[in-house]
């Protein structure tokens, strides 16, 4: 389930992909948010252009830890899949 086809390009920092495709320590900007928790994620700060970083991934395909707006949030892989991010070449920050 979590070894889905992540565009190899997204790790090269070129275009849009889902949040769970980011490698550890990689940063990107939020593009769109979906999934059942969409409203909550928006309220928690996943608005367009926000810089997010995957700071940690648990073993066995467990949750991801995301850093945004100077706090840390854990979410499951399926939730991260519903968040699209842009990894533009003009590296954020």
């Amino acid at each position: 389930m979590n070894d889905k086809q992540c565009d190899p390009i997204c790790s090269l920092g070129l275009k849009e992909c889902s949040l769970d495709c980011l490698g550890r320590g990689q940063k990107a900007r939020v593009a769109t948010v979906g999934g059942p928790n969409r409203g909550r994620l928006l309220e928690m700060g996943f608005t367009r252009g926000t810089v997010v970083e995957v700071s940690r991934r648990a073993a066995f395909g467990g949750p991801l830890e995301i850093r945004l707006r100077s706090y840390r949030l854990s979410l499951r892989v399926d939730e991260a899949q519903a968040i699209r991010v842009e990894t533009d070449s003009t590296n954020p920050e």
């Binding site: 909550r40 928690m44 949750p63 830890e65 949030l73 979410l75 939730e79």
Partner: peptide
């Protein structure tokens, strides 16, 4: 049902 979510602030 659907697998529930996990949004936990650290």
């Amino acid at each position: 049902g659907e697998p529930p979510s996990f949004l936990l602030e650290m």
